[in-house]
């Protein structure tokens, strides 16, 4: 098959994927999206011969538009534009999980600092303020006190891009010093790892230590449901352990008892850390899945 890799930066993840594709003899079109132009009706020349496009754009904005254009041209792309749109935005991400009945931390949103303070007072301290669009644990704030909350809201309201005036506030989940990253293909886990840190942020990008994690049936079920909630694809599903079944962790009417809460699904998942931490070959699994995807499109 001919696979178009849409990118603006070749990370270790893309390199692993390219290597696996080459080893299997697939044709590859490396497509630097910074060099493309997108018309409303005609695909860029670089898209002409591909069987499938793989969106690996590092920049979320580029990912969102590249996937939209590909679908407008009728060219298969993974992940889909809708999955990208849901996963790229924490509000949409949380709404999708909630709608699907997946346990997810209680989250409220407000548009002014006064209303945001109402949320914080309701949640109590600490609680967590996250940027609606953002990654790698950046611009996350643990709000420990009223004065800190007021100051952060004022800074965001005064200094930020308009998206920073959407205050996404989440209950603080007292996780056991780690969270769980699952890489999944259409809801089927490829592998999982815990990310451990003494810091409250446990992103691998923040230097957390990683270690393979054995998923139990409940976690597998939640991964499948979370994947379906955002439209499936190659995804990174992030879970936290709540310590005990805590249906109240979910803000929904149909909250169910669960030992986990799913805080996020990532559509442009980085898998190099999992590939090193766990006894799994993530790029091989991804290419298997791409081959099946293309076979499905062609049949």
């Amino acid at each position: 098959m001919n696979v178009g890799i849409c990118y603006s930066r070749i990370r270790r993840d893309e390199k692993l994927l390219l290597s696996e594709l080459r080893d299997r003899g697939h044709e590859i079109e490396k497509i630097d999206v910074r060099k493309q132009t997108f018309s409303l009706s005609e695909p860029p020349e670089a898209f002409a011969d591909v069987d499938v496009l793989v969106d690996r754009c590092l920049a979320t904005s580029r990912s969102l538009y590249t996937t939209r254009f590909a679908e407008a041209y009728g060219i298969p792309i993974v992940n889909s534009a809708e999955t990208a749109a849901i996963c790229a935005n924490k509000v949409r991400n949380s709404l999708a999980l909630e709608r699907a009945g997946v346990p997810t931390p209680a989250t409220d949103v407000a548009f002014t600092k006064e209303s945001a303070m109402d949320i914080v007072e309701r949640f109590g301290y600490p609680c967590v303020l996250k940027p609606v669009i953002g990654s790698w644990g950046r611009l996350m704030a643990k709000l420990d006190s009223e004065s800190a909350a007021e100051a952060i809201f004022e800074h965001k309201e005064t200094l930020g891009h308009y998206e920073h005036k959407v205050f996404y506030i989440q209950e603080f989940v007292d996780k056991p010093g780690r969270d769980i990253r699952v890489v999944a293909l259409d809801g089927e886990p490829v592998g999982a790892m815990v990310r451990k840190s003494d810091h409250w942020l446990t992103n691998a990008a923040k230097g957390a230590e990683t270690e393979e994690f054995e998923l139990d049936d409940e976690a597998r079920e939640l991964v499948a449901e979370a994947s379906a909630a955002v439209g499936g694809g190659l995804l990174g599903v992030d879970l936290m352990e709540t310590g005990e079944p805590q249906g109240s962790q979910s803000s929904g009417q149909d909250a169910r008892e669960s030992g986990y809460t799913v805080h996020e699904v990532n559509h442009n998942v980085e898998f190099k850390a999992l590939n090193e931490a766990a006894d799994v070959d993530v790029p091989a699994a991804v290419v298997d899945w791409l081959e099946d995807t293309v076979a499905g499109v062609e049949s």
Binding site: A59, T60, S135, W136, R138, N268, E270
Partner: peptide, 11 residues
């Protein structure tokens, strides 16, 4: 020189 890190970069 590589581009500077942008706010919307990531997963």
């Amino acid at each position: 020189e590589a581009p500077e890190l942008e706010e919307d970069w990531g997963e």
